[in-house]
Simulated scan of single mutants.
Amino acid sequence: MKHLVVYAHPSPESLNHAILETTVEALKNNGHEVTVRDLYALQFQPVLKPEDTEAMKAGHTPIDIKTEQNFISEADAITFIYPIWWTGLPAILKGYIDRVFSYGFAYSVGPEGIIKLLKGKQGFIINTHGTPSEVYDEIGMTAGLKVTSDTGILDFVGIEPVGHLLFGSIGYVDDAAYKGMLQEVRTTISSVFA
């Protein structure tokens, strides 16, 4: 299986980076071909500009967008790894979605409504956040994040959501807790993408 990992965190010392390494290792151990797109390392330009839209309408997709679309087209599964900032996606990843999941590539519209153009792919999401998970669960934020990402992004374009891990209290727990999180990532990825 060809697996694309889209990663968005600026620090190589972060838990997110350890999650990335753990995910890639688990996938490779299961025989998957893995491609990582580290948006910060790529210095991905996240702002959807009027000239981008005009170029795509004219059938001339800008090369940076087309490159990412090619990786998505070739993938059987896509895993997104990113922190939750201000209860949402980091700007660089939001911009990736805005620019890469474009009309005519990821979705279209017909007489019957939305046409999902990325059917046949699986999607998995791993998030971290500083707020305790219990608090996010209690106020409905965990459910809200899953609906926004799993339904509002993945399912909207036809990608089947097959899992979503959220880890809270980042920055406030001990090493044993972080090791437990990485073990959960390893076990879950190995099981979902056996």
Rank of each mutant, 00 (worst) to 15 (best):
A55Q: 08
G152S: 05
I81Y: 05
E33Q: 11
A194Y: 04
L165H: 04
P62V: 06
D155G: 00
S73D: 07
T87D: 06
L117P: 04
I63F: 15
D38C: 04
K49E: 09
Y40C: 09
R186P: 00
T148K: 13
G168P: 03
K2F: 04
L89N: 02
V34I: 01
A194P: 06
D175Y: 07
G158M: 10
T188K: 13
T128R: 08
I139E: 04
E54R: 11
E112D: 04
F156M: 06
G180L: 07
A77Y: 05
E112H: 02
I115G: 02
A26E: 00
P10L: 10
M181E: 10
D98L: 11
F101D: 08
F193Q: 04
V192T: 13
I81G: 00
P10W: 03
I78N: 07
G130P: 08
A194L: 09
A177K: 15
I19W: 01
N29M: 12
P111T: 05
L165M: 09
P12G: 02
E74G: 02
S73V: 07
D98T: 08
A106H: 10
P161G: 09
F156Q: 12
I65L: 09
D174R: 03
A75T: 08
K94Y: 04
Y96W: 15
P111R: 12
G120V: 11
V24L: 08
Y40V: 14
Q43M: 08
S14Q: 11
V100K: 12
T148P: 00
G180F: 10
A55H: 09
A18W: 13
M141Q: 13
V47L: 14
G168S: 05
A58D: 09
K57T: 11
E134N: 10
T188V: 01
N127K: 11
G88S: 13
T188E: 14
T79L: 05
H3S: 12
Q43N: 15
H9T: 10
H129C: 07
S11V: 08
